[in-house]
Each structure stands twice: as structure tokens, then as C-alpha cells.
């Protein structure tokens, strides 16, 4: 599904140039659950942003579903992204002005799904995430675990092929964290490819494969059994 080779990304301030990704290459097959680990500043988030087409690489190739996307412009990337990729963030990033239902509905609105279909699909996914009873609440009325479940619901409502999770349990206690990891595992078992950035060895153990990064390069890969 994903093949990147010799990917490079630099950050420049006025005087300093920092290398975030240094000729990084890797592949992720459809249906995989990959964890990316490494110390702060190793390039995990940069990699995730590029994989999620939020950012473009400075050099190298990124093939997504057999399409080279490294040089796509923003509109094309946005288009590809909204139909194929779901995001889960550490800080949930729910929109405060919208209810649970409306937050989850949002991606469907942007992809132009009809209203009746939207209701059906949002209710379906809220049911699955066991958050249906909170559908008319606002994010700030929910616990962290509940918020992250809404965020996951929002990520999967469009039935994306790929879910990118950036430290999804980072703001949760261990019990809520485990629930979230169970949810992701379920999604993966139903066929969704998952790439997750994490600091937690515990969470990484849910994945099939761990890629360890240091200074923008792969230093080790562990295959989980």
C-alpha cells in the first residue's frame, strides 16, 4: 500500500537547517499494523505528516496505492486524503463547537455524502464505538477516553483504507488507553491498515511490526509474533 524511498525532509530556520528525515525508505503492506517508535525529534511526526499527505517531502518518492504522490499539489493531496486516510491525534482535536454526532459527521459532509446516508453511517460507527448515548454532547462534556473514541469514530466513518494515529493513548490513563488500543486492533482485524506513532512499548506490542527511528533514519525493525 505504501512505499517510500529515500525520503528527505529539512526544516530551515534563518540560520540552522535541521534534517528531519534522512533518506528514509520503508514499505507498509495493506492490512498491516505498524508502530513507529523513537525518541523525541527523531522524525516520527514528520514521517506521519508526510504519510498523511499533510506535508510534502523535500526529496524522495512516496507511492500510495501505486500512485506517486510526492509531488502532488495541496488540492490533489487533500482530495486523495479525504477518501483514503483517517487521523487519530494524541490531543483528540475535536471541534469544540460541534456535538459528538456533528464531529463524526464532518468528514462525510466534506466528501459530499447525502444527509440520510450520513445519519445512518454516523449512528453505525457511534454504536460500534459505544458512544451512541453521548451523541448530543459537546467534546468538553466527555472524558478523555470518550473523546478519543469519538476521534476514532470520526477517523473511520469514511471507511478509510489507512488510519494514521499519532500517540493515540498519550493523553489517556492506562485503562482508557487499552480500550483505544483494542479498538484499533479490531479495526485492523477488519482490514484497515494502521500506522501508529507511539512512545509506549506497551502500545507498540499491539502492532505487527515496530519501526524504530533515530535522527530521521530507520535503525531497527522488530517483527512481532
Amino acid at each position: 500500500m505504501i512505499k517510500i524511498s529515500n525520503l528527505e525532509k529539512f526544516y530551515r530556520t534563518e540560520e540552522v537547517e535541521t534534517i528531519a528525515l534522512n533518506k528514509l525508505s520503508m514499505e507498509v503492506a495493506t492490512g498491516e499494523f505498524v508502530a513507529i517508535m523513537g525518541p523525541s525529534g527523531c522524525g516520527k511526526s514528520t514521517l506521519l505528516n508526510i504519510l498523511g499527505m499533510l506535508d510534502d517531502p523535500d526529496a524522495g518518492s512516496y507511492v500510495f496505492n501505486e500512485i506517486e504522490v510526492a509531488h502532488f499539489n495541496e488540492r490533489k493531496r487533500a482530495d486523495l486524503r479525504k477518501h483514503n486516510i483517517g487521523f487519530v491525534f494524541q490531543s483528540f482535536n475535536l471541534i469544540d463547537e460541534l456535538t459528538v454526532f456533528e464531529n463524526v459527521e464532518l468528514p462525510l459532509i466534506y466528501t459530499g455524502v447525502a444527509a440520510s446516508e450520513r445519519v445512518k453511517r454516523v449512528e453505525e460507527v457511534l454504536d460500534k464505538m459505544q458512544i451512541m448515548h453521548r451523541r448530543n454532547h459537546y467534546p468538553q462534556q466527555l472524558s478523555g477516553g470518550q473523546q478519543q473514541r469519538v476521534a476514532i469514530a470520526r477517523a473511520v466513518v469514511n471507511k478509510p483504507k489507512l488510519i494514521l494515529a499519532d500517540e493515540p493513548t498519550g493523553n489517556l490513563d492506562s485503562s482508557n488507553g487499552n480500550d483505544v488500543m483494542e479498538l484499533l486492533t479490531d479495526l485492523n482485524e477488519q482490514g484497515t491498515t494502521i500506522i501508529m506513532v507511539t512512545h509506549s512499548e506497551h502500545d507498540a506490542r499491539y502492532s505487527h511490526r515496530i519501526i524504530r527511528l533515530l535522527d530521521g533514519q530507520t535503525v531497527m525493525e522488530n517483527i512481532m509474533v
Binding site: 487533500a78 486524503r81 482535536n93 475535536l94 464532518l106 468528514p107 466534506y110 470520526r154
Partner: peptide
Amino acid sequence: GVRKVIGAAR
């Protein structure tokens, strides 16, 4: 940012 990630066009 969130809206754009989710799929909002400019």
C-alpha cells in the same frame, strides 16, 4: 487544521 485533515477544501 482539523477540518482540513478531515477533508475540508479551502
